[in-house]
Design a binder for these strands. Sequence first.
DNA 1: AATAGATGATAGTAATACTATTATATTTGC
DNA 2: GCAAATATAATAGTATTACTATCATCTATT
Lengths: 224, 224
Amino acid sequence: MEQLLQSVKIGINQKIYVKDPESSDLGKRIVERSILMIDEMGFESFTFKKLGTKIGSNESSIYRYFENKHKLLLYLTSWYWGWLEYQLVFSTNSIANPKTKLEKAIEIVTKTTVEDSAFSHINEVLLNKIVINEYSKSYLTKEVDTENKEGYFGIYKRLVTRISQMIKLVDAKYGYPSSLASTILEGSLHQHFLKDHFSSLTDCHEDDDPTKYFLHLVFTSLKS
Amino acid sequence: MEQLLQSVKIGINQKIYVKDPESSDLGKRIVERSILMIDEMGFESFTFKKLGTKIGSNESSIYRYFENKHKLLLYLTSWYWGWLEYQLVFSTNSIANPKTKLEKAIEIVTKTTVEDSAFSHINEVLLNKIVINEYSKSYLTKEVDTENKEGYFGIYKRLVTRISQMIKLVDAKYGYPSSLASTILEGSLHQHFLKDHFSSLTDCHEDDDPTKYFLHLVFTSLKS
DNA sequence: AATAGATGATAGTAATACTATTATATTTGC
DNA sequence: GCAAATATAATAGTATTACTATCATCTATT
C-alpha cells in the first residue's frame, strides 16, 4: 500500500484550516509535533504557545494555519478518518460477497492501528490514540450544529454511511443499519479506551478483541 | 416511587466534594443552578464565577463545596448514575425471569428521562442531557487512572457490572458480557446524541428508538 | 453574650487564548 | 541580481479563567 499512498493526499474541508498545513514545512511540523504533544500531555494541557516553543516557532505563526486548537483537533481527526476511509475502500473494493466485505470493513475500523510509513510526518499510531481519547471532544460542544452544517464532520459521516451501506447489502431488512454502523465506530473507540483504563468494564483485553466482539455483535444481529 | 425516594439519598464518593452540597441550602443551590447552566451554556463556558453571580453567592464560597468544575461534573454525573442504578434495581428486583429482567434493565437505562419530582432541587431531565453531552469529558482525561483508583467512577462501574451480571444470567456462555453492558450504556448516550445532532448517522429518531435498537441488538446476540 | 462556623467581599496570581503591530527573513517574478 | 511579495518571528497587549489568600460579616448554637 505504501507506494500507492505516496501520491495520495487526504482531502480535508478547507474551512477547517486558515492555511493548508500540507503546503509548507512549518505546516507539516505543526501537524507532526501537535500529534506527539496532544498524545503526551492531553488536549486540555496542549497550547499553541507550548507547540511553538517545541517546534522552534512562534505562537502567532501557528495561528496563521489554525484559528484555534479546536480546529487543529478537527483537522487531525478528519485526517485520521480520511486515512481509515481510504484503507476501508481500498481493502473492500474488490470483495464481491457482501458478508465478506462487511467482515473486512469491521476488521479495518476496529483494529488497533499499526505503523504506516506512507505519510512521513504523521504518526498514525499516536493519531489513533488521540482519536480514542479526544475525538468525542470535537463534537460534544455547543457549536456542533453550526460546525456540522459547515461540513466539519463530513469524512466521519461518509465513513459511517459506507459501513451502513455494507450492512444493508448483507441484510436489507435490518432496521438499524445507521445505528449499527455508528455503534461499530464509536463503540470500537470506547472498547479500546476501556481496555486501557477500565479493564473490568470490558472483555477486550487483547488488541484484536474489539474486532472479535464487533464481528460477533454484527453478524448475530444480521440475517444473511 | 416518589414516596420511597423522598427518604433516599444518592450516596456519592466523599472525595468528589469538599463539603457535601446536600448538607446546606447553598450547596443545593449550587447543584440546582449548575445543572441549568451547564445544560444551557455547555461545560466549557460554564465557570464558578458565573454560577456565583446567578445564585447571588460568591465564587469563593462555591470553592468550599467543589475543588473545581471537573469535580462538580463528576458529582453531577455520579448522582445521575446513582439515580439510574436505583431505578434499575428497584424495577428489576422482583423479576425472576432472566430475559424479562434484562429487557426491563435495557429499557430503564436507554430510555429518555422523564420528570421525577422526588428530588426537588435536581432536574433529572436536564441532568440526562448533561450526561449525554458531557459525561465522556469526565473520563477522557490524563488523570483518569488516578481518579479511577480514587473511586470517582464507582457508581458507573457498578451499573455496568449489574447489567453484565444480568446478561450472564440470560446466556452464561456469551463471551462479551461486560463489553455488551458498556456498549448499551455508552452507546445509548451516543444514539441519543446522534438523534439530536447527526440524524443521518442513526435510525433512532423517536425517543424510544434507542431502547428498541438495543433490545434487538442484545437479544439477537444472546442465546436464551 | 460569646463563639464557632459558614458565607461574602476583595485582591491578587499565573496561565490561557487570543489580536495587533512591527520587524526580519525567504521566495519568486522580472 | 534586485524588488516586491509573501512567510515567519518577535513583541506587546487584552480579557478571561482558574484558582489562592485574607479578612470581614453574618448566623446559629451553647
